[in-house]
Amino acid sequence: MKHLPKHLRPRWRYLAVGIEAWPDAEIGRRAFQRALWYAAGNLLGDAGSADAGVKLLSFSFSGGAGEAVVRVRRGHVAEARAAIGCVSEVDGDPVGIRVRGISGTVRACEERYMGRAAGSSTQRDVAFAGAERPAVVRGDACDVRTESGYVGAAAFDIE
């Protein structure tokens, strides 16, 4: 179909979203998009989520950290931000999520807010709570494996 004249095209805003999870979490693009749609549908209702038009444009995730670009209709950024804040788990894996910033173009969004993930993660043993335990270290963050699952620690705790 012939594309719309410029003044009739919808205007968009692009949200840079940072994602965090436990190191063993496997989060795929489809699962994240589904979580986003469900969060928007549940919080804003069908009409509200159609208005916001939340769509995942790019997504990357590995080793417990990731980032995404989410497209939102201009003027509905506050609603979209609320919906994104309500994504608490993806496929049963709890996630921490945060809107890093908003841009008017995908390019500005990527240049300003993306690619600043805290490096790659390494696996090593750390001294935590009086014992040597396996942990996944990523920058300042350090997820320690204990008997009852992972515990989030920081460099401060393992020195």
Partner: peptide, 10 residues
């Protein structure tokens, strides 16, 4: 599930 330091840095 997180220590004080991790909560503080986040």
């Amino acid at each position: 599930d997180a220590t004080v330091a991790r909560q503080a840095t986040t």
